[in-house]
Amino acid sequence: MLKLSNITKKYFKTMALNKVSFEASRGSITGIIGPNGAGKSTLLDIISGFQNPDGGEIYFNDQPLKSFKEYRKILSYMPQHLEIYPDYHVDEFIEFINAATEHIDINLIEILNLEQVKNKKIRYLSKGYHQRLKLFFALSNTKEIIVLDEPFDGFDPIQLIEILELIRSENIKGRTFILSIHQLYDAEKICNHYVLLNESRVVTQGNIQTLKQTFGEDNYSLEQIFKRAIQ
């Protein structure tokens, strides 16, 4: 469905991404995992059309994506560094999104528990609620691919269960997810395809069974596989 072929990105002399290639199939939940500075956020920015790669192509259903308009039609992106209008109240922001798109999923407000903070200014929301609002923005549309950069930041274990459930239910509806996840333990709970990134390049990729076969044993955790892979 979404295929990256030899994506390269340089910032002056620093190589941020070096010939990154992988494919996210329809209905999959792909986890981009790797340590800090591996290039996860840059990769997600490029996948979403927010940055231009220096080399390589991105294909959607075997057609190369050329303009930002094309990306916008198929893909919704929640960047990690996003501070939604701090001086807006939550309901004001939701109203704005609704008025601009004329389509929001009202159920999402309930599922994400946003109703109880609707009269609060966004700047006074806890990190968890701010993250919920970001997720609301990313999911309140009908786009096929959802790209989320560190979506589980700021959630306590109970909140995390709710959010994972939400992503699963959206995935069941047929949406494809590409997530950048810092915590390998969280990635293991939700992803069915992994792309391990280290020092700007893809170390390995595949589903958990393939990775275990390649780098470890059946009882290996993703963390152990990752350690092995980067060695």
Partner: peptide, 15 residues
């Protein structure tokens, strides 16, 4: 730019 909210606007039906 600082809050990265252009990322929101540009994903809504605005160029």
């Amino acid at each position: 730019k600082e809050h990265n909210t252009l990322a929101i606007l540009i994903q809504l039906p605005f160029s």
